[in-house]
């Protein structure tokens, strides 16, 4: 990386120069890669090892990522067959973890790719280890993602719906979600 560029983007040089080597050293198998040519550079992690990577990032005194500000789930899928031809992504789910350190005021983005359905069987929710034990923020964020996006978090103490009613069917933020026509006698259309 050029000298000028790194001084312009200290975040990026920190990510490439410090975080990535440290992570690759501790987790040689688990780190899939690092994408830097984007607005918010991210490190991709294998889904099954997200919890251990997160624990390392939180506890390591060099990083001290003590705050998880956001987890967002993105459904890359185009249900409309006409538009699907122009849709340039493979259908998959992404989980994006936005970490922040109150000490160094640095941010870090972790990403993991998931199949839309576990074993490609519709209705089987994909599974990810929960980071609830690392940051308590994850408790509600993971519940929300489970509720709206349908991702199952392994090891979450009480994974149940949070925004939708407990007996709601489906996960509204999935691209192929269809609003139920009726809910307890309330007509939706």
């Amino acid at each position: 990386m050029a000298e000028t560029e790194s001084s312009e983007q200290p975040e990026l040089s920190w990510l490439e120069g410090t975080v990535l080597p440290a992570l690759e050293k501790s987790f040689p198998e688990e780190i899939v890669g690092c994408t830097t040519e984007v607005l918010d550079p991210w490190i991709e992690v294998r889904p099954e090892s997200i919890a251990s990577v997160c624990r390392f990032l939180r506890d390591d005194p060099e990083f001290h990522m003590d705050m998880l500000t956001n987890i967002s789930a993105v459904d890359y899928f185009e249900p409309d067959p006409k538009k699907a031809k122009r849709f340039k992504y493979d259908p998959h789910l992404e989980l994006v973890y936005h970490l922040w350190s109150t000490h160094s005021k640095r941010r870090l983005i972790l990403k993991l790719m998931l199949p839309r359905w576990k074993n490609d069987q519709a209705g089987q929710l994909p599974e990810v280890p929960s980071v609830n034990s690392i940051w308590r923020t994850a408790d509600w964020h993971e519940r929300e993602i489970y509720d709206l996006m349908g991702i199952f978090f392994l090891g979450h103490p009480h994974l149940r719906r949070i925004l939708c009613p407990e007996d709601w069917v489906g996960h509204p933020l999935r691209k192929d979600y269809e609003m139920p026509l009726e809910y307890h006698g309330i007509r939706n259309r």
Partner: peptide, 25 residues
């Protein structure tokens, strides 16, 4: 968190709310 696939309509518009986390405590 805005994710776009290149059209005018975002693929994902995620809102991280402060109160949501504040309430969880």
């Amino acid at each position: 968190h805005i994710v776009s696939d290149g059209t005018a309509v975002p693929l994902r518009a995620r809102a991280r709310s402060g109160c949501f986390s504040n309430l969880s405590v």
